[in-house]
Simulated assay, not measured.
Amino acid sequence: MPQTKFKVDLRRRMNEQEVPGHNRWHPDIPAAFSINPGASFRMECLDWTDGQISNNDDPSDIRDVNLKRVHVLSGPVYVNGAEPGDLLVVDILDIGVFQEAEWGFNGIFARENGGGFLTDHYPEAAKSIWDIHGIYATSRHIPDVKFAGLIHPGLIGTAPSKELLDEWNRRERELVNSNPDRVPPLAELPDKDSVVLGTLEGEEFDRVAREGARTVPPRENGGNCDIKNLTKGSRIYFPVFVDGAKLSVGDLHFSQGDGEISFCGGIEIPGWIDLHVDVIKGGMEKYQIKSNPIFKTSPVEPHYTDYIVFEGVSVNESTGEQAYLDAHLAYKRACLNAIEYMKTLGYTGEQAYMLLSTAPVEGRISGIVDIPNACCTVAIPKDIFQKDIFPKKEE
């Protein structure tokens, strides 16, 4: 078993750990430890909210969650010899839950505090707790479903250079300024509230806290991509922007549907992850991997082959306005169509919304060339349900 190089105590918040992690991106956050290329190691992770959500039936902790705190990440890891222009090769060897925390959570954030993909339709907070039984998950809040999880890190990435960080902040500030009063906002800008920056102190802490980018979106360094297929057996090739690469990881999910549509999104868990790292010198230029990572998929996946599939096209569901090849809108329509159908099976809209976000749902851009409508699909495995879910002709 790989040696544990980053440990967490589930009774303590990230800033209280023996070696704290971080919740902002910045090149000057000190490394938590260093490792040589070719080494394997284990990192333990807190859940993305830093322990704010409880295993109960009350959604008020979802409603009131402090989103300035997220995501708490383990690391950074300094990979000896890695330099800007290299590729960092990261193999995910294994991932698991802690024996003392064999449960996870999913939720719908209130519009005024984060919102989500369908916040116009579901503006109030809701929560589902999921019990983990080996490879399977069930929930007392969403009955008659059981599925195998595809456990993965929602967030894994390298540190940005100062130049890249400045570019992130510039373009996201420009976007927010285009509609500064929007709720939820168009982007989350640097904010000193609830910052965790490893072992930084004093004036350096204050400077990095003012500059550090929020971890909410995916960016050129990887980050919060929420790709459910990045599971054990996957290999990721990350661009290196700073000496040592400074790899960080967190936001573990026991399971997730494509899109993580509820934003509090997969089955969120604390846990551990085993990694192996190597370096391809000059790999960014050689393979033209300059702006985003690439990855090799894993041979390990839940074996579901029969799905019920819902289509959506790029027509606004409220106004009937036609959009031009808008895949975001088409995926939204596919999700809404799936939710309306699941209501006929006895689920509430909130239950169906959270199920789409947690189960191993397959999302696709099925058509992107036939003007004016993009077509997206949402495929739900039929075997996760403990009842027949397909339409039936009355006898």
Rank of each mutant, 00 (worst) to 15 (best):
residue 190 P to M: 12
residue 42 R to C: 14
residue 270 P to I: 01
residue 134 G to M: 07
residue 255 S to K: 04
residue 299 P to G: 05
residue 365 I to K: 14
residue 340 E to C: 09
residue 122 Y to E: 03
residue 134 G to L: 05
residue 145 V to Y: 01
residue 333 R to V: 15
residue 296 K to L: 15
residue 8 V to E: 01
residue 120 D to M: 06
residue 2 P to H: 10
residue 39 A to V: 00
residue 43 M to L: 15
residue 372 P to R: 11
residue 50 D to E: 04
residue 112 E to M: 05
residue 267 I to P: 03
residue 155 L to P: 00
residue 64 D to P: 00
residue 285 E to G: 12
residue 167 E to D: 14
residue 293 P to C: 12
residue 380 I to K: 02
residue 64 D to Y: 11
residue 387 K to T: 01
residue 152 H to T: 10
residue 238 F to C: 08
residue 382 K to W: 01
residue 280 I to L: 12
residue 161 S to C: 10
residue 35 I to M: 08
residue 13 R to P: 00
residue 110 A to L: 04
residue 205 F to K: 10
residue 308 I to H: 05
residue 379 A to G: 09
residue 357 S to C: 09
residue 23 N to G: 11
residue 382 K to S: 12
residue 24 R to V: 12
residue 306 D to P: 00
residue 357 S to M: 08
residue 221 N to R: 10
residue 270 P to A: 15
residue 64 D to F: 12
residue 108 I to N: 12
residue 149 G to V: 11
residue 312 G to S: 08
residue 37 P to I: 13
residue 126 A to S: 13
residue 214 R to Q: 11
residue 306 D to G: 00
residue 142 I to C: 04
residue 189 L to Y: 06
residue 197 L to R: 02
residue 385 F to C: 09
residue 183 V to L: 11
residue 21 G to A: 12
residue 186 L to V: 06
residue 204 E to K: 14
residue 39 A to S: 15
residue 317 E to M: 07
residue 224 N to F: 09
residue 335 C to Q: 04
residue 243 D to K: 15
residue 100 E to T: 14
residue 324 Y to A: 11
residue 328 H to L: 11
residue 60 S to Y: 09
residue 223 G to C: 09
residue 85 G to Y: 03
residue 247 L to H: 05
residue 244 G to A: 12
residue 288 Q to I: 13
residue 155 L to N: 13
residue 28 D to V: 00
residue 388 D to G: 07
residue 266 G to H: 04
residue 108 I to D: 03
residue 378 V to H: 01
